[in-house]
Simulated scan of single mutants.
Amino acid sequence: MPLLELKNVHSAYGNVRALKGISLHVEAGEIVTLLGANGAGKSTTLRSISGLTPVSDGDILFEGKSLKRVKAEHIVRQGIAHVPEGRRIFAGLTVKENIMIGTSGRGHLPRRQMDAEVEEMFEIFPDLKRLTGALGWSLSGGQQQMLAVARGLMSRPKLLLLDEPSLGLAPIIVQQLFATIRNIRSHGTTVLLVEQNANMALSVADRGYVLATGNLIVEGTPVQLQDNEEVKAAYLGGGK
């Protein structure tokens, strides 16, 4: 049984149909990437999974149980964390306070346990450790992205949804970020990644799906997608 399965999922914003029958699956322990141009439906797919965008038809199953009518806050408690595009950290809170907010859906935790878990995040994101007391607004874009991911991991998710984590970051920071994504998977967290940097996404993914105008058009392993002429031409800077 897949950890996550989407079955013929339709979602809309008013009269605009954003997803037109998406079916995909994610196995436990995988990194799966969703590729596609702006407006393809990638972010809507993540928002539908996390309960932020209603599903009008079809179903989403997590560990075999439907999420279709489950509220977003309960989806977090079931083990899905969503790191949205744009980071959305709390600018007036410190790095440590931002990270600690990630535990809010887990009920009251003893301070000693919370401090220990924050230290675990600093092991995964060592650049943040020296910034413990820095306010969110003072961080660079790369540091803010690392902080957003760390906050998401504090909910102890089985599945981490990452939406455009490399957006606006310098190439060297992107390399560090994707090394961290590999590290997150090695710690036992499954990752569903939306990313416009297709080459980088495929370098860490086990499988990928390509979306266009709300439809899935191609799926396969990184090698299969990299060898697909349509995918190369549209997303990888190559092809005939």
Rank of each mutant, 00 (worst) to 15 (best):
G51W: 11
V83H: 07
G220D: 07
M121C: 06
A234S: 12
V218G: 07
S138I: 08
N183K: 15
K68H: 03
Q78K: 15
K7W: 02
E85Q: 07
D59M: 09
E195P: 03
K68T: 12
I89L: 12
E85F: 02
L19D: 00
Q143V: 10
G133L: 12
H74K: 15
V223Q: 15
E195N: 07
I31Q: 02
V149G: 01
L19S: 03
V218C: 13
K7F: 05
A40N: 02
S203E: 11
F122C: 06
N8L: 04
V95D: 02
H187V: 10
A148F: 07
K7H: 13
R17N: 14
L19Q: 01
L139T: 10
T53C: 13
G188A: 04
V204D: 04
T221G: 11
F62E: 03
P54I: 13
F90E: 07
G105E: 08
E27N: 09
M121Q: 07
G188S: 01
V223C: 13
W137N: 14
P126H: 12
E85I: 05
S138T: 10
R106Q: 10
S23Q: 03
L225C: 09
V70G: 06
L162P: 03
N8V: 02
I49H: 04
Q144K: 11
G64E: 06
G107Q: 12
P54V: 12
L131T: 11
G14V: 10
A81S: 14
L161Y: 00
E5A: 10
Q175C: 13
E229G: 12
A12T: 13
R111A: 12
H25V: 08
L159C: 03
L67P: 00
L3P: 05
E85Y: 02
L34F: 00
M100T: 14
